[in-house]
Design a protein around this nucleic acid. Structure first.
Length: 260
DNA sequence: ATGTCGGCATTGTGCCGA
């Protein structure tokens, strides 16, 4: 089973690039972030024509997450628990029924800039809610994949120029500590199972020629429960997509899970 | 210091969010 996470930065602006990617080497499941549209505005037909079921959790203009799946999905849940007043569409989960059943969670964690300030407070509060959701999911002792745009640079090696991010909400000590608290529940950063060291990025800003200079950061992550980590066969960052026409500023992170 | 996008309110372009 292949599961990819991809912040597409607007489904309507990115539909053709996304379809080209799916046609070339589509994963079984794509967890999308920043669809930037309401559920009824999502262009479902071309994805359904390619055999993908489409589950969305959108809102007007900003944020929004979705699951595309060639496998059957059960028990779709929209919205991160823990704050009934939170109107931002940043979380969707479902159980994918492949050769093994996997709980797949797609997330778009708040950016949090400027920090400090109310947006940063919201980010940290959202991360506390994510920690609670992760605890509950881990208690099921089932394979769980929580993948998406975490807007967290975990360590200095995850930025080309870490000094430039020192005061940024993506890298501040409180942000990284909150991310570690989640990892320390017993989750695995899938990318780091296979690849150590610096220079592996999932995001390059549109500004300042960041892609051409390889001035990137690793902020898209897949966190695995122990039962999912047991299944992990491969992880790759599909960096080449960043060099295409009309790219997103993020690239896909793709996992292969296989039993036995 | 700045450099770019996507979406929106709008028919020109400036604002917001990233």
């Amino acid at each position: 089973m292949q599961i990819a996470s991809f912040n597409i930065n607007g489904i309507r602006a990115r539909a053709q690039a996304l379809l080209d990617w799916l046609d070339e080497d589509g994963p079984d499941i794509a967890l999308l972030q920043e669809i930037k549209c309401t559920d009824d505005a999502f262009p479902r037909a071309p994805f359904e024509d390619r055999g993908y079921r489409v589950e969305t959790h959108g809102q007007k203009s900003f944020n929004g997450v979705a699951i595309l799946s060639r496998l059957p999905l059960e028990d779709v849940v929209r919205g991160l628990p823990g704050d009934a007043d939170d109107g931002q569409a940043r979380w969707i989960e479902a159980t994918a029924i492949g050769d093994v059943a996997v709980r797949v969670c797609g997330l778009y964690l708040p950016n949090g800039n400027p920090a400090p300030g109310p947006k940063y407070d919201y980010k940290l509060a959202w991360m506390a809610r994510l920690e609670e959701r992760a605890r509950a999911l881990l208690a099921t002792e089932e394979p769980v994949v929580m993948a998406g745009d975490y807007n967290v640079i975990p360590q200095a090696e995850d930025a080309a120029r870490p000094e430039a991010w020192a005061e940024d909400a993506l890298y501040r000590p409180e942000t990284r500590a909150a991310f570690r608290r989640i990892l320390n529940l017993g989750l695995t950063d899938a990318f780091r199972v296979q690849t150590r060291g610096a220079g592996h990025f999932t995001f390059w800003d549109y500004q300042r020629g960041a892609w051409e200079r390889d001035d990137g950061i690793r902020i898209d992550h897949a966190l695995l429960s122990p039962q999912a980590a047991d299944l992990l066969a491969d992880v790759r960052i599909e960096a080449a997509l960043r060099g295409r026409d009309k790219p997103s500023d993020h690239v896909p992170l793709r996992l292969t899970l296989s039993p036995g």
